[in-house]
């Protein structure tokens, strides 16, 4: 069983959703981002790690700031891999999902990228601008290496399309809660989001469906029924705030993740 699947199995046994965190590799620098990961992994079930891109067409201000900060600090894709490798050496069973934009992968070469992901211990990949069915080949290549390719569905995805996407998905599917870039305010009621979530779930009960976009300390409890919940921008924002106030982002971000976890336990 994949580490991603076991993580969900564990949280289901504990009768709670999995907590997925998203932070950007290299934010606010290489060393700190690794420390943040190692620390929040004590409360998070799955760690999503962003590899930064400088023209992110689906990210809001918070994640953009994190990505720009990481790039300004000179983060390269090889650094992202070394962060994952280092993280995995101390947290072998914690699933890691890399998330980013396709051009970075494309320049590296699909096969090359997937091979190195495998080598350093990446468990899953989310590629924001490689939708279904364009992602079919890439997803297949991931599967061959036992890497989860995580499909996204959104409020604009028709039921017919959703059916095909779910059918082609691996262990986990990411449901985008609303029409928004990352970091937007939750503008749809949790009830509506969960209604839609249930529809997706009906296609295949065995798939782990996580909800992301607009989830914060305030909103997380209301979506507790989902298999998993992703919090990203709220953490990136905390890193920005910590940098601004010259505080330690590791402590501050960990505190938030701790609180998030409490709210869904």
């Amino acid at each position: 069983m994949s580490l991603i699947n076991s993580a969900f199995k564990k949280t289901k046994n504990e009768k709670r959703p999995a907590l997925l965190t998203y932070t950007v590799a290299g934010d606010n620098n290489k060393k700190k981002s690794l420390e943040i990961l190692k620390s929040i992994a004590n409360y998070a079930d799955i760690c999503e790690i962003g590899f930064p891109h400088n023209t992110p067409i689906a990210d809001g201000g918070q994640i953009q700031s994190s990505a720009y900060r990481a790039l300004k600090n000179g983060i390269k894709i090889k650094d992202v891999f070394s962060i994952v490798k280092d993280f995995k050496q101390s947290k072998q069973t914690k699933p890691v999902i890399l998330m980013g934009y396709y051009n970075v992968i494309y320049q590296y070469g699909d096969n090359n990228f997937i091979n190195i992901c495998k080598k350093v211990g990446v468990d899953g990949l989310i590629v924001v601008d490689l939708p279904y069915p364009e992602n079919k080949d890439f997803a297949k290549k991931c599967k061959k290496k036992n890497i989860n390719f995580i499909q996204l569905v959104s409020p604009t995805t028709s039921l017919n399309r959703m059916k095909k996407i779910i059918k082609d998905s691996h262990d986990m599917v990411y449901y985008i809660s609303m029409l928004s870039t990352t970091g937007g305010k939750l503008k749809v009621s949790p009830k509506k989001i969960l209604e839609r979530y249930n529809k997706i779930k009906k296609f295949n009960k065995n798939k782990n469906i996580v909800i992301g976009f607009g989830i914060t300390e305030k909103t997380i409890a209301s979506l507790k029924k989902a298999d998993g919940l992703v919090v990203g921008s709220a953490l990136c924002k905390e890193i920005s705030k910590s940098v601004e106030k010259r505080q330690n982002p590791v402590t501050n971000v960990t505190n938030i993740v701790k609180k998030l976890r409490k709210k869904i336990s």
């Binding site: 689906a58 924001v128 601008d129 490689l130 939708p131 364009e134 569905v153 604009t156 995805t157």
Partner: peptide
């Protein structure tokens, strides 16, 4: 060319 777009934009 092609369509390298987020899922949300597929439908529109």
């Amino acid at each position: 060319g092609g369509n390298f777009i987020p899922e949300t934009l597929k439908k529109p």
